[in-house]
């Protein structure tokens, strides 16, 4: 089709959608809509993962981000009843500054890509790296220490969230 392969089409569409939804996250007035757009962005990113032969990651991504984190967001928004668009807008100056800063960063980053040689991705030899088996092997051999220590992280987060969340009995 128009000289592009299906992969390229998929890539293009997914990228376009991802960026679109990401922009909507930022510009949407209503937080609930933002959450939903973000979920859509995550789906697009999961699509990219599939393209990149990282099926396992794609599903985990959905489970963790869409299934847990964003639900948590939605949950909090609902509990706090932020339905109204009562958010006071930042002043125009701040917005412009933010925009300019972001634009500059984009400029610098994109500029830094210019000199890079074109490395084409290929699935040859990479189709097996995203499998559960392979990832598990890497995770439990090379990355064993981070894996174990991540439990401390989660424990700390859990203790912290509970400590903050619970009401003082006093």
């Amino acid at each position: 089709m128009l000289g592009y392969t299906i992969t390229q089409w998929l890539f293009g569409i997914l990228s376009f959608l991802a960026i679109m939804f990401a922009l909507m996250v930022v510009f949407s007035r209503n937080p609930v809509n933002s959450v939903l757009y973000l979920v859509m962005t995550f789906f697009c990113i999961a699509g990219h993962y599939l393209l990149l032969n990282a099926q396992f990651l794609a599903v985990v991504h959905i489970v963790v981000y869409a299934g847990a984190i964003m639900v948590l967001f939605l949950f909090v928004i609902m509990l706090m009843d932020l339905n109204q668009d009562s958010e006071p807008q930042r002043t125009m100056v701040t917005k412009i500054i933010a925009g300019v800063a972001g634009g500059l960063m984009l400029f610098v980053l994109v500029g830094s890509l210019k000199g890079t040689e074109q490395l084409n991705l290929s699935s040859y030899g990479s189709s097996q790296i995203g499998t559960v088996k392979n990832l598990g092997k890497v995770l439990f051999s090379e990355f064993l220490f981070p894996f174990e220590i991540a439990s401390v992280l989660l424990l700390a987060a859990m203790v912290g969230a509970i400590m903050i969340g619970k009401k003082d009995i006093k």
Binding site: T5, L52, Y124
Partner: peptide
């Protein structure tokens, strides 16, 4: 699956 797309 991803053949032909540049990392850039």
């Amino acid at each position: 699956m991803i053949n032909g797309i540049s990392i850039n």
